[in-house]
């Protein structure tokens, strides 16, 4: 059975009664991710665990470890050292024996580097790599884009945590879930169900990893 809004609201009310204020957090890379604050919201009834209160500049720090490329790697090797990666900002040679080794660069430092709203610069959001990347999907950059007491949260796509955050979307009263925990009891097909923006439904809903096709 799908989680009904009534269940969600019941859970939210319970949480709201129990929960006071948990401290907000700042990610090491500078992107503000607030963990929990006072429940003031009227749109979703509950503050999502992850939401983007404010856009922050991303830093230009990247790991200098590696690359540790084993001899005779079967996957393609486009670079062998960080010094090989000179055609962008903060190049690093990254990879693994499944995906191969290739250069990655910081593609942005601020949302505006990615184009008009709602494009977001995701700090350290690279695929299996710590470079800053542009997210081209979504419908908000920050909570304020979602109206008074609105929340703009990072969403996984159809391929679950394999691809990581694919965009930021507003929560609305139509949502079937707010956080992944709301989906724990959902039937699963592959991996654990998670709470993500469903672009067909036009709202957040529990989702099973589907990976295209």
């Amino acid at each position: 059975m799908r989680l009904t809004l009534t269940t969600v609201y019941a859970a939210m009310v319970a949480l709201a009664l129990l929960g006071g204020c948990v401290e907000g957090g700042q990610r090491a890379d500078g992107d503000a991710v607030v963990t929990d604050t006072v429940v003031t919201d009227t749109t979703t009834g509950r503050v999502p665990l992850k939401h983007r209160a404010a856009a922050a500049m991303c830093d230009d720090e990247r790991s200098t470890a590696g690359p540790d490329i084993p001899g005779g790697a079967g996957a393609p090797v486009d670079c062998t050292s960080h010094a090989d990666c000179q055609s962008g900002d903060n190049g690093r040679c990254v990879g693994n024996s499944h995906d191969g080794w290739y250069c990655t660069y910081d593609l942005c430092f601020a949302d505006e580097d990615c184009g008009p709203s709602p494009k977001v610069c995701e700090c350290g959001g690279g695929f299996r790599s710590d470079h800053n990347v542009c997210l081209h999907e979504g419908n908000c950059r920050v909570d304020a884009d979602c109206g008074a007491s609105g929340y703009c949260s990072p969403s996984l796509g159809s391929c679950g945590d394999y691809t990581g955050t694919v965009g930021y979307y507003c929560h609305t009263a139509a949502d079937e879930c707010v956080d992944d925990a709301d989906c724990a009891g959902e039937p699963s097909t592959f991996g654990s169900p998670y709470c993500a923006y469903n672009p067909t439904a036009g709202k957040w809903a529990c989702s099973n990893q589907q990976c295209a096709g």
Binding site: C134, L135, H136, G157, V166
Partner: peptide, 10 residues
Amino acid sequence: LDASHSAHTS
């Protein structure tokens, strides 16, 4: 998909 997510996936 990779272009939209700035990713380098399979």
